[in-house]
Amino acid sequence: MTGTANDSEFRKQLDDLSLAQQRAVGARFVHSVKDLTDDARIDVAIKVAQDSEANNDEIHSAFKSARSAVLDCYTRCGADADWATQASYFVARAASDVVMPEKEISNNNPAWQAAMHSRMARTCAVIDTDTTEEQQETEQQHRILDHFLND
């Protein structure tokens, strides 16, 4: 299989996966930005999303705790932006994407959503600097998908 060259191809490949595969590869995207948070609830979401045997109750409970992680680190209206905390907010959102119960997913692809939120997390972490880490995260996601497809 040839490597993922760009984002539209990346997205198309994600769209072609089954929901269980989307959760599993999305979990790998989340894992890649896990350095931006120390919240244990994220690990639970990653684990459940990668477990093809996980039942609906387990998914739902992982989703609930990922959502509470989201609410613990959003920025309040009017609060001074703390981009490091905001990075963990997006990691938590990415984590909740991959364990979102099926009926709430609607047209969204959980893996794509997790990819976007993971990139946003990386962006927040470097927002006041002049680095290319965010581009690196995109390339990393392309590699992750290649590995996943070749596993």
Binding site: T75, G78, D80, A81
Partner: peptide, 16 residues
Amino acid sequence: SPMGVKFPALKAQAGH
């Protein structure tokens, strides 16, 4: 911005 969001931050989000 009341939350200290500068234009580059908006640009970055817009990029995504």
